[in-house]
């Protein structure tokens, strides 16, 4: 299967925008080669701003640019964007509801060798808790490109979570991404597997393994974490009566929590979570770390079997 890192897709989308949309300004904090904003710089250097190693100022300056009616994209690693600059995002971007697109890369444990100090496992939780903020976690390169183009048309603050490592391409160009709308990748009636980001491809693999065992899994890509698509989730669980959530993020505060919030209030059913079990990331090869933190197809299958017993 073709593989591409979502950050590479971001670079490609920015490059196109750099040539076609004069309202866009791209900002980075000394990581432009890693976040791929350097691709934009190549085609539109006048609209590229390197703010240096100063993530708080990155967000403040982006807010100011948005206040002049332009569309800033602010990029750095997820750790520094949502961690270091959290309160600036909260008070200077979200509170005044400014049109800043925060696109952060190197999220989750698959940041790999850099280790726990760099592996953001809290960013979805942080961004999701801020009013006015839209939170999107694309599953592959195609969806990333669609997301980037879509958020240019949308007015308001957006957080997009991207990864460092290559992931399988799941969509083809005919896919239409809509903010606030899940995409059902596989229809099934026994269990709902709802995943986001790099874990969507693993959820699909798990569904194939489950099929061999006679279990029909529905697989949903929850690429917009906020606003949450309550309707699609509820339609699915009314049919399947149980859910497994899958994310490369702390199980506290991320997709699993969002799903639990909606289900408990509307349609309580058994739920199991696959995610980072409230521990920090570590150094290692990304694939090895996915094993270590039990972010695997095997673990999804196990949790599905568990949740089915609880039905």
């Amino acid at each position: 299967m073709e593989q591409i890192a979502t950050r590479d897709a971001y670079g490609k989308a920015l490059k196109e925008l750099g040539l076609s949309n004069d309202d866009i300004i791209v900002l980075d904090a000394d990581l432009s080669k890693s976040t791929k904003t350097a691709e934009f710089q190549k085609v539109n250097p006048k609209h590229f701003i390197n703010i240096g190693i100063a993530e708080q100022n990155l967000m403040g300056v982006a807010a100011g640019i948005a206040a002049t009616g332009k569309i800033p994209f602010a990029s750095t690693f997820a750790m520094f964007a949502t961690g270091r600059a959290f309160e600036i995002i909260r008070n200077s971007i979200a509170y005044p509801n400014l049109n800043v697109k925060i696109v952060a890369t190197h999220s989750g444990v698959t940041v790999g060798e850099d280790g726990g100090s760099h592996a953001a496992i809290e960013d979805i939780s942080l961004m999701r808790s801020v009013p006015n903020m839209t939170v999107i976690v694309p599953a592959d390169g195609v969806e990333t490109e669609k997301v980037i183009k879509k958020i240019v048309e949308y007015k308001g603050p957006v957080y997009v979570r991207l990864g460092r490592s290559k992931v399988p391409v799941l969509y083809d160009d005919s896919y239409e991404f809509e903010i606030g709308k899940f995409s059902t990748l596989k229809v099934g009636s026994d269990v709902t597997i709802i995943a986001c980001g790099i874990m969507v491809s693993k959820a699909l693999e798990a569904a194939d393994l489950l099929k061999e065992k006679g279990i029909k899994a529905e697989v949903i890509n929850a690429s917009t974490i906020k606003p949450f698509d309550d309707y699609s989730l509820l339609e699915s669980v009314k049919k399947t009566k149980c859910v497994v959530t899958v994310e490369e993020h702390n199980i506290y505060g991320g997709l699993g929590s969002a799903v639990a919030e909606v289900l408990c209030q509307n349609y309580p059913v058994p739920l199991e979570m696959v995610g980072v079990m409230d521990v920090f990331g570590e150094s290692g090869a990304p694939e090895e770390l996915l094993e270590k933190f039990k972010l695997t197809t095997r673990e999804i299958v196990k949790k599905v079997e568990l949740v089915l017993k609880r039905k």
Partner: peptide, 26 residues
């Protein structure tokens, strides 16, 4: 930088004798 090593990509004071503070975020 290998899985399971005490020598993380950035220093971890709880893993390595002599490292006085966990750093990596500039």
């Amino acid at each position: 930088r290998k899985t399971g090593s005490i020598l993380q990509g950035h220093p971890d004071m709880n893993k390595v004798p002599g490292v006085e503070m966990s750093t990596g975020s500039l």
